[in-house]
Design a protein around this nucleic acid. Structure first.
Lengths: 144, 144
DNA sequence: CCTTTAAGTTGTACTATACAACCAGACCTC
DNA sequence: GAGGTCTGGTTGTATAGTACAACTTAAAGG
């Protein structure tokens, strides 16, 4: 028989355990792209390009952090800067072809890893789990 | 109608978003104890003391990392070292009273935050969500 | 115009982390 | 029981990610 407090306790414990491992797990899965870099590239792809400031606001990162992350991604030829037509101060960031390729590769790896990990879940459970995660994250505010 | 791939995709996306925010969220929730320190203290409480090597093995951290974390926690008077009775090389780490108090405080804060966040979930959903997280984490291997 | 605001970069500092070198105590084998 | 090896732990060094503050340049608004 379910007990509210026990369930909350378990959720807390398991999410904490997950959080602790997540970055190193990501690093193992795709050494060439940290979790943050991956996220930034994915966002650029999703939006079809945006400004550094937008990334900073969206992910609650300092603009200096984003500036350096982008500089690193540019050095790797994964991102390029284009002048913003209406604001000479700003740059619009876009994936390069290489960036798109790397992102696709990493995305495919991640997808495969998750699929395998969830291979023996039945469809109804997957659907409910996805729903719970959405609901949980939605209550976090506009952090993502 | 649930679609397997769509659910996996959602799970992946939402877990990634969660992982990205987790550390800074923890830092906001309890600035005095990082997620890792919190975990180490909790483990010490749970086990009633253990060696640094055990912590490193359990959390897949390098022993040097644990050594420095423990040194910091000792400086804060949250952890103390006791000679290991049967091995002069080793030290058994224990919470100090202050460490136990801080851990209790942080645990209470976290619990309250999770409770509030999950306040409008009904008991059956909490129970299922907890079960799914357990199942998901269990498939990760003995990382925790 | 001149002041204020916004976009980005750079200097500096801190934390978490790993790997390698090392030390000291324990253990094993002959 | 002496020497070689293994184990627990610390320290040196390096890297990544992050923040805050100072600065530059351009836009916006009185």
């Amino acid at each position: 028989m379910p007990d509210r407090d026990a369930s909350v306790e378990t959720i807390q414990r398991e999410l904490t355990a997950f959080a602790r491992r997540a970055r190193s797990a990501a690093a193992r899965m795709h050494p060439e792209l940290s979790l943050v870099s991956f996220t930034l590239l994915a966002h650029l792809e999703d939006r079809g390009g945006c400004r550094a400031t937008d990334l900073a606001a969206h992910y609650l990162l300092d603009k200096s952090t984003v500036s350096r992350q982008i500089a690193a991604l540019e050095r790797l030829d994964l991102v390029e800067r284009r002048p913003a037509p209406e604001d000479q101060r700003a740059q619009v960031l876009h994936l390069t072809p290489r960036g798109a390729g790397t992102l696709a590769q990493v995305t495919a790896n991640r997808r495969a890893a998750f699929r395998e990990r969830l291979a023996d879940w039945d469809e109804a459970d997957l659907d409910r789990f996805a729903g719970y995660l959405l609901r949980y994250n939605a209550s976090a505010g506009p952090l993502d």
